[in-house]
Amino acid sequence: MGSRSQTELKTGLQRRLGNIFRMRDEEINALADSLYKQRVQAWKTAIAENAKACGYTGAIPEPSGRDAQWLKSMSRLDADSIAKTWRKDVEKEIGRLYEANHRGNRYYYRKGIDEWNAKREVWKSRQIANQTEMTTFGFAQARFLGENEGLVALYTFVGPPPVCVICIRLYGMGAVTKQVMQEYPTPIHFGCTHTWRIMPGTATGIDPGKLWVGGKTPRKRAA
């Protein structure tokens, strides 16, 4: 039987070492819990900012019911996705390390993976935190508007100078109605850091003391 090709050796090594360096179930569970805590904070910040723009000055309750379930579900999905991406990326790096040194031992790979991950973590953790915050902010804002149906206000697209074509257009539109804002829910794209903000002094149509700011939706009385 002939000797195995370099490609076969590399592929087999990537799989074996990939199993060693993969994220364990307990690590994925811990990541999901951490993401949920970040989402809860982003949720409360989003609700608070929108409520404050409408004149509300009270406390913001913890998310509950369908909102808490959404935050937990998204956190779990994100944790699983992050683990899969890590597995794919680490196997790719193992392949690169193999090409650099076919005779490398386990210490060589451990050192190489640790150095690679330290550099990756600098930008990857920021990317994950940003996506977690922005998707949660967009969801919380949509819930706030959906529950406070009588709210009328003008909105502006805010954030850093945009580079995406759609973000550039929205950024330059200035004050828009709720209908326009809802046509373009944020984040507009992956990595987008723009959000919609209620323009100060434009919110009308609902008593600040009767705003839905999270928690259970109050039952509507029959007319």
Rank of each mutant, 00 (worst) to 15 (best):
R126Y: 06
F137L: 07
K111L: 08
E49T: 08
C54H: 00
L31W: 00
W123K: 06
D89Y: 04
K124D: 04
R103E: 13
M74F: 02
K52Y: 12
I113H: 01
A142E: 14
R143Y: 06
A140P: 02
A42K: 00
Y98W: 15
E115G: 06
L97E: 01
P61L: 09
W43P: 00
Q38L: 14
R87K: 15
E121D: 06
Y108R: 10
S75V: 03
E133N: 12
N105L: 12
R126N: 05
Q41T: 15
A83S: 12
F137S: 03
G95D: 15
L77F: 01
K124G: 01
E27Y: 10
W70I: 02
S75T: 04
A46T: 09
N29L: 14
K111A: 11
E93M: 13
W43I: 02
E93W: 07
E93R: 11
H102Q: 13
K44T: 13
L35W: 08
R103P: 00
E49D: 15
N105P: 14
I28H: 07
D67C: 05
R96P: 03
R110N: 10
N130M: 12
F137A: 08
R103L: 11
E121P: 01
N101R: 13
T45F: 08
K52N: 14
I28R: 14
M74P: 00
S64P: 07
A68V: 02
E26I: 12
Q141L: 05
R110S: 04
L31N: 01
I60Y: 07
A83R: 01
P61G: 08
N101D: 15
I28G: 03
A79G: 11
P61V: 11
W116P: 03
W86G: 03
V122F: 06
E121C: 01
R110P: 01
N105D: 15
G138W: 00
K72S: 10
N130T: 12
Q41G: 14
W123T: 11
P63E: 07
V40D: 11
Q69T: 07
Y108I: 08
A118H: 04
A79Y: 02
A30V: 05
K52V: 11
D78Q: 05
G95V: 13
G104H: 11
A51G: 12
N117K: 08
L97R: 00
I47V: 15
E49L: 13
S125W: 05
E93D: 12
I60G: 11
Q131V: 02
A48P: 01
E91M: 15
W43N: 09
Q127K: 04
S75M: 07
D89C: 05
G138N: 04
W70V: 02
Q141Y: 04
N101P: 10
P63L: 09
G65L: 14
Q69G: 03
K92V: 13
M74D: 05
E62Y: 15
E133P: 03
T132P: 01
D80N: 11
V40N: 12
R76L: 07
F139I: 04
D114T: 12
A79T: 10
E91Y: 10
H102L: 14
P63T: 08
E49M: 10
A83E: 02
Y36T: 06
S81C: 00
K52A: 14
K119Y: 02
N105I: 11
D114G: 01
Q131D: 09
R126D: 10
D33M: 13
A48G: 07
G65S: 13
D67F: 03
